[in-house]
Design a binder for these strands. Structure first.
Length: 231
DNA sequence: ACGTATCGCTACAAGTTCGA
DNA sequence: TCGAACTTGTAGCGATACGT
């Protein structure tokens, strides 16, 4: 069983649910990591989010606090950073090329310094980088498979789970699409019965638009899942 | 009040499907 | 194979929300 924090990037959660199925992925509120499988506790960060976490922008706890918790609470902690494209954010309107370059250099330096002292500060945590979100999902799937189902460890894992999600995983997938509410997701499932039916070749934008509240834009976004999951 | 962003709706052109 | 019907992508327009 792979436990996933319910505040994690919904794109990653959806990809995992589609790859592994809802019987192997449990979305719940986690205390100190983003993902848990067996004795592995995994903190995942998109590269730009890593920078913001280091700086403490827009959050109450910095990454140092998070990693200390992670290190203390599980036997095999990991920090996985995915993505390579730094996107500098500059305040006050349209940024100049110069201000972007300055911010980019600052981001690189901050991340570099963080990595340079990482093992000094968190000797127990394994640090790794992957280039894309898809590669990170693949890493999770492969390692989950390698670990086996690890059912005997479930009790340990579930200590970390505070609040289990009550939403049907199919509704979670649909309602994570921009603009789709849980009610609309329920209506879609009532109409089409399953996600494979919604995404099958015969389903058109027009047929999805028969469902109350589904506009052409939303129908297009739903059918775009075919591309994401290569259906 | 104004500018901007976003969204839904519509029209139209281009591509696809399907039956004769 | 051909043409009608259907589907889809795109552009334009108006309504609305939001920040200044």
């Amino acid at each position: 069983m792979l436990l996933v924090d319910d505040r994690e990037n919904p794109k990653v959660v959806n990809k995992l649910l589609m790859r592994m199925g809802s019987d192997k992925v449990n979305v719940c509120r986690m205390k100190s990591s983003d993902y848990t499988m067996g004795e592995w506790g995994i903190e995942a960060k998109e590269i730009n989010d890593l920078y913001r976490s280091i700086m403490g922008f827009g959050r109450t706890r910095t990454i140092v606090d998070q990693l200390r918790d992670l290190q203390d609470s599980c036997e095999h902690p990991f920090l996985v950073v995915y993505g390579t494209q730094l996107k500098p954010y500059v305040h006050n309107g349209r940024p100049s090329a110069r201000s972007l370059a300055v911010e980019m250099a600052r981001m690189k330096k901050v991340i570099q310094q963080f990595k340079a002292t990482f093992y000094q500060r968190f000797p127990k945590i394994k640090y790794m980088e992957v280039t894309t979100m898809d590669e990170f999902v693949e890493w999770l799937v492969v390692n989950h498979t390698q670990q086996g189902l690890a059912l005997h460890r479930l009790a340990t894992e579930e200590k970390n789970a505070v609040k289990k999600s009550k939403l049907d995983s199919r509704i979670q997938i649909l309602s994570s699409i921009e603009g789709i509410t849980t009610t609309q997701a329920e209506d879609l499932l009532n109409e089409f019965e399953s996600i494979p039916n919604i995404l099958r070749k015969g389903t058109t934008q027009k047929s999805l638009m028969q469902v109350s509240g589904i506009t052409r834009r939303k129908a297009r976004a739903i059918l775009a899942l075919r591309e994401d999951y290569e259906l």
